[in-house]
Write a protein that binds this DNA or RNA. Structure first.
Lengths: 103, 103
DNA sequence: TCTAATTTGACTAATTTTGTCAAATGAAAT
DNA sequence: ATTTCATTTGACAAAATTAGTCAAATTAGA
């Protein structure tokens, strides 16, 4: 899993690698070019549906891209929080606890 | 850190322990009783400001309550996600990476 | 059973997110 | 240098989500 690249960077790199224009990919996503530009520069978040379509369009592994995307959503929640690191750890513990309970 | 109790349960337990009514606490928070009732039963999320006030009103350690609250917000983001667990782990790695970079 | 506390659900208000559009900027090619 | 096309920017609108009120229904204790 790439930990040193933002979702946006991954998307831009792959799009350019495939020689596609923002315009072309945006058309397939049915959104304005401006939004895709912003997504690639991490100025906007994509929606989950857009991520799924992008994986398809750019031949990226859907699950990997989704994990990347979700982890970014999580980090976004705590980005300005002093206690973010602690909260993440506690969230993991609670997640384990919940999973244990449901088995 | 309590891992087996929701924020709502913590709040309700402490409020009852102190013999306060929903009405009284809600008044201090400047919201309708109905909302506090829903927060305590995890039907609604509190805002960060409400959590801070509640820690004060109920004599709970602010940081602990905030960590509890933030971890719940994180879990909420991934509650319906198959890949939630993986995303959490990746978020932690990325968090570490970001912290390393900024030091 | 009376009374006060809590819960429920329908509704409104406020905020955030997602999107469009047009103008500005940048980059490549003559 | 000028043209042309891709990308970026920012102001704005639409849509969705979140936060709140209110009143009626339910629950719990004396």
């Amino acid at each position: 899993m790439k930990i040193d690249k933002s979702t946006g960077e991954i998307l831009r790199d792959k799009r350019e690698e495939k020689g596609l224009l923002l315009r072309q990919v945006a058309a397939k996503l049915d959104i304005d070019t401006a939004i895709l530009s912003k997504i690639e520069r991490s100025e906007r978040k994509a929606t989950k549906e857009q991520i799924i379509k992008l994986a398809e369009i750019l031949d990226l592994k859907e699950d990997d891209l989704l994990v990347q995307y979700l982890s970014e959503k999580i980090l976004y929640e705590i980005k300005d929080e002093e206690l973010g690191q602690k909260a993440l750890k506690v969230a993991e513990q609670r997640m384990k606890f919940i999973n244990k309970k449901n088995s």
